[in-house]
Simulated assay, not measured.
Amino acid sequence: MKEECTHNGADIGDYLKLCACTAVILQTILGLALSVHPSNGIQVGIGYLYNFVKFTAPAFIFGILYTTTRTTVHGSEHLSYKQYLKNSWHNLFVPTIWWTSVYLFFLPYVQQVNHYHDLPSFIWQFINGNGAPHLWYNTMMLQFIILMPIFWAIATWCRDNQTRGWIIIGLTVIITACWLWFYDTNVFHGTHEKDWYLFDRLFLSFFIYGVFGTLAWQYRKYFNQMIQKFWWIFLLVFVGSFWWINQELISFGTPVLLTNAPYYKPSMTIYDLAMIMLIAAIALYQINRQIKFTARVHQFAGFAYKAYLSNVLWAQLIWHTFGQSLMKANTIIGIIVIYILTWCLAFASAFGIHFVWQNIKKMLSK
């Protein structure tokens, strides 16, 4: 079997990160589409489409842990935790700080739950992920960066011992099942729905995807064989779980509320894992055949996080210029046009800011 990483550096993690970013931008647009109160039929269609792309955060976490395990545990980097945090500070924390500041200072109306009114509330909005609709994810993901030694320890302890791998899988499934039961009982339409809502961005909610991403590389020989041989089973699971999550959503009736389609339920967890496996199967198919497209996937995946950070800004600018009028006139066309423009602007800004910053650094070094 060919090594899963090609000469251009593309791996399964790149495909997952790029697919997650591409899909999550659509989630932003679908939320805007519902705000113009389309017909019930279109609302249900939007709900189905929203469920279809509701794999983004799990896929991103799986992809990050997969690539990080490949490059730091078995790769050539051999980073210390201090060096890893230093690299993450520049690549992840600094962009997060800048973009969170942009939203809080220049687009304060996109804040969630509460709005800041003094310095303490500003700091609280800054760190809890309520600065914009999508920044909750940053709060959750950066926890995985800080807790990376846990996943390094899992990879090191498992090595190529299959028994230890199954032990970790079993424990992870039990922890996830208990957490989902706790969340469904107490938070999702539960007695603590309002005051415990921050639990949705606690790393435990996505722990299973981090562990499975680590093990996917650790046992890559078996993982690669499994998803290439049994991809059709994952396709059947995907279809069945997609029907399941849609039935759950429409059971709430109309108007369709996207908050009724959370990540934290068994049906969505199964759906997300099935989608991740299918994306991984497609990735391996292309990587093993050294298709040139993999080079582009690797290139764009490197800017996916920064494009994700900016997407709400571009969506808001488009929305307040002509997007809202277009969406009211024709919801379907509005979704397509605004989504394509937002995706292009998000990645263009990510590439553009990087290019400008690199040139500034060259000038300063001289």
Rank of each mutant, 00 (worst) to 15 (best):
F238C: 09
Y305W: 15
A301I: 05
W243I: 04
Y305A: 06
R296P: 11
L257V: 08
A295R: 04
S251Y: 05
L284G: 05
A280M: 11
A280E: 11
T254P: 02
S310V: 13
Y264M: 10
S310W: 11
N311H: 15
Y308T: 09
W243C: 01
F303W: 03
F252R: 00
H298C: 13
F303S: 02
R296W: 15
S251K: 02
A281N: 08
L309I: 08
S241Y: 09
L273F: 13
G240L: 09
L258N: 04
M268T: 00
N260Y: 07
I276K: 02
P266F: 12
A274N: 08
A280D: 08
V297N: 02
K265S: 06
I270T: 05
R296C: 12
D272Q: 08
K265D: 04
L284I: 14
L249I: 01
P262D: 03
I291N: 14
K292N: 15
A261P: 02
M277T: 10
A304W: 01
A281K: 14
P266Y: 07
T294F: 09
L258Y: 04
M268C: 00
A307Q: 01
M275V: 15
G253H: 09
S310H: 14
Q299C: 15
A307E: 01
S251N: 11
T269I: 10
N260Q: 09
N288T: 13
T269F: 04
L278R: 09
G302K: 01
S267I: 03
Y264F: 15
P266E: 08
V297F: 01
F300K: 01
T259R: 10
V239E: 12
Y305H: 09
G302A: 08
E248W: 03
L235G: 08
I291M: 11
P255Y: 05
F252N: 00
M277N: 11
I276V: 13
Q290M: 11
S310I: 09
V237D: 04
P266K: 06
K292V: 13
L284M: 12
S251F: 05
Q299G: 12
F252Y: 01
Y305Q: 07
Y263P: 10
E248T: 03
F242V: 05
